[in-house]
Amino acid sequence: MNKARGDGSIFSRLSSTHIVYLVALLTLAVGSVLVATAGRSFFSPGNISSILTGTSVLGFIAIGQTLVILVGSLDLSVPYVTSLASLIAAGVMANNSANILAGVLLALGVSAVIGLFNGLIVSGLKVHGFIATLGMGLIISGFLATNFKGSFGQTPFSFRLVGATGLGPVPISTLIMLACAALAMLLLHRTRVGHQIYAVGGNPNVARMSGIRIQTPVITAHVICSVMAGMAGLLLASRLGVGSPTVGSQGGYDLLSIAAVVLGGTLLAGGKGSITGTLGGVLIFAMMDNIMSVMQVNPFLKDVVRGIVIVVAVAVYARRRIVNRPPRFGHDGHSRQEMPGTEETQEVRA
């Protein structure tokens, strides 16, 4: 906080993405010192590999969550979609490598359908994203609890390799996650629907009045988010070798992914933010987890540290946003002031 007030001019010129990576760098520095005092090396290939492994599952979900938050909605159904996808994949594959493609496609297909329903409920029935996806999550969780008592199905060895191998210290799963992130960035910055996502998240009324069909970006974001949650489910199925009805909800991925997205500098109200920032947020979480594991911090205290870091980090951005704000604009004038402008230039370009 003192930093924010002290050199406000430099600080306010930094974009939130820069701050995220500064925080990540700080975590890295603190982490390497702390890990060194514990007599281990933070930069050993094994440790780097374990940090990157920790980024992949949350990374998939957070990428999808970024799109949904950018469009002004939320997705609380992701952990249940993740569990469902892991069950479908493991069930269809049934330890036969000939079924891998069918399992993957079916799992992602079902996830996409769930995302489609989420999007339709949010954009068509005008239900707040929080409630729509909370309800959808509950519906799926009831289905899972009724039909699956424990782990189910089995993934074949060749599929399990995806979760277990890596190029040097970089696990394959992280590379797939980064590829998905690149695709999502391409979508956001190079396609029409990507620009529409920012516009609708910034101010749906203005977006509608400038001729955007609000449904399209909202549904697209929700479908992609659910498919990403499905990818996370596939990865977990590949790591565990079985599908599990509780693997998603145990991870608490709904709230953690939202926290990672906001930690990455994306506005919770939508319309402002980036995938790059989200990846930084996920990396910070993974490094924190790793440092605390190496330091053998009590697992319950990990949650305490996580909670405090989330709030403090977001408080720093929020501070910066106030510094940046022109005085004549009110509470959320910031996004309203900028979004119509960018929207217009895009319209002209198109």
Binding site: A259, V262, R306, G307, V311, A315, I322
Partner: peptide
């Protein structure tokens, strides 16, 4: 501090 309440109370919940 202008932190969204969703994040504040989420952090409080975890902590």
């Amino acid at each position: 501090l202008r932190v969204p309440s969703f994040i504040v109370t989420l952090g409080m919940m975890l902590a």
